[in-house]
Nucleic acid binder design. Sequence first.
RNA 1: GCACCCGUAGCUCAGUGGAUAGAGCAAUGGUCUCCGGAACCAUGUGCGUAGGUUCGAUUCCUACCGGGUGCACCA
Length: 571
Amino acid sequence: MSYKQLVAEKINSALTQLGVEDFSTEKVLDMLETPPNPKMGDVAFPCFQLAKALRKAPPMISQELAGHIQDPLFKEVQVAGPYLNFFFNQHAVTHNVIQTVISQGSAYGDTNIGQGRNVPIDLSSPNIAKPFSMGHLRSTVIGNATANILSKHGYQPIRINHLGDWGTQFGKLIVAYKKWGDEEAVKAEPIKELLTLYIKFHEEAEHDKSLEDQGREWFKKLEDGDEEAKHLWQWFRDESLQEFMKIYDLLGVSFDSTAGEAFYNDKMDRIVDLLEQKGLLTESEGAMVVSLEEYDMPPCLIKKRDGATLYATRDLAAALYRHEEFDFAKALYCVGGEQRLHFQQVFKVLEKMGYDWAKNMHHIPFGMMLKDGKKMSTRKGKVVLLEEVLAQAIHDVKQVIEEKNPTLADKDAVSRQVGVGAVIFHDLKHFRLNDINFSWEEMLTFEGETGPYVQYTHARACSLLKRGGYVPGGEINIVEGALEGDESWAVVTELLRFPEVLERALEDFDPSQVARYVILLAQTFNKFYAHVRIVAEDEAVKESRLHLVAAVIEVLKEGLRLLGLQAPEEM
RNA sequence: GCACCCGUAGCUCAGUGGAUAGAGCAAUGGUCUCCGGAACCAUGUGCGUAGGUUCGAUUCCUACCGGGUGCACCA
């Protein structure tokens, strides 16, 4: 049970004594706040809302409540005008928190909210035959961290890389390859060459309008099983996926499925038939659509004039398939905010089909990665490649290591962990919905609110344990006076917050909560480190302080793991 | 034009309706024979504008202004 809950229960029983019945413990818990300044207490209860029920001024209410609350857990219950401020018995809480964190280890903060139920989550989903740009990083790392957070809460995430391996663009690519392509060039540098062809196609299409039609024609052939088209498509896909896997390895992201859009090719007829049966399909301007007029939305396009399917058709088929295959508790789509309308439409169509599980589907949108304040465009060749960014970050980290810690054992491995960590963390610390303006300078900063800062703090804490000769597994004894300053108490209250942060991160599908938390914990710990001599002369004091350090290490490591970062012990 | 998202310090961003709105970067100055200086400490005339709801609004609602994104055969 959390301390806040205990406080809420105490307040609730005091309220009952005052004759207030309709305030549940849960409601009180919801009203509890953290005071703006630690000097004002650890938990605060504002009494404004009680004024009506009790017909008294809030300051009087807090005064009366204080008289009914007593518990060894509280050092003091202070009346501050309309607020009731609780000061914890620091020694007891400190001991308890350290005990809990160390005994639970990486399981600290776990819940069983998900009860083992499946949650397919759509993430990364790059387009085949296009380079993996900084833009794709967002979906990949936000999705991966969200999946980790789900699993922390007892869900079974299923990471699906819904590859963009189907659609008219492949018709265009086939046309471009047949016109200007060269087999050897593609084999040598597949993505680069395919991108060149893709760009050339769009340049040529400016003058030659028939190219677009040819592209559509070839995609139709592909859907109809034309041998030549299928062969080329398979080749493009294999080469591309192989390139992507290098990046995923570096990022430490793996998938349970790489079934992309093409996977649903043979499942399209069924969804179209179902829509037909349910009388939802109507013809409009030659295309087949589901009207969503009653929701003030444009119609959802199911089939093009030429009979080929569309993005929405494939997502509908995928939704049906996932429901049948996984019986999911939720289904998540970690896809950019530009596609809000698309997902709203797809979800509404499923609702109209009578599937009440559609309400468990969520689009997790995020802002765009911009360059110079503008959208990166693959077609215009204005992209920053993730591969280059990662390589540069790793290179820069290695230089820092050469300078600061030249005797480090495994420099290359650590450079990779820290360099990649910097890039992932930079993305995750931003609130999802905001756009991120790409800047090399910011990306390659390793000081302040960055991944390396947190990793550094962790490494430094680890080296304290070594220096202090800390032996894990022993009984946890906290001697009086060892952990009583503001600095250590601040660390303890941060550790206390971890489970709350994780719950909010789950509710909002928001890994940035965890990223922010981990920065704050690192900052708080670094203050403690700078002001308190941890490896002290006195053996018992040293032991006590090292226990706190060990607890911080556990939480930092687990926080970083959830975000998809490694926590090296030295760097 | 309609819909959605975002406007907080010079810059990048936090901020679950509550008590004096916070970090980082950049800048300047500093840090005990100091456990890792990728650190710590010190320096801050800022919530786009105008209304509304509320005991109380940066937070909720409405309008406007500014930026972004969508709006039928691309994904």
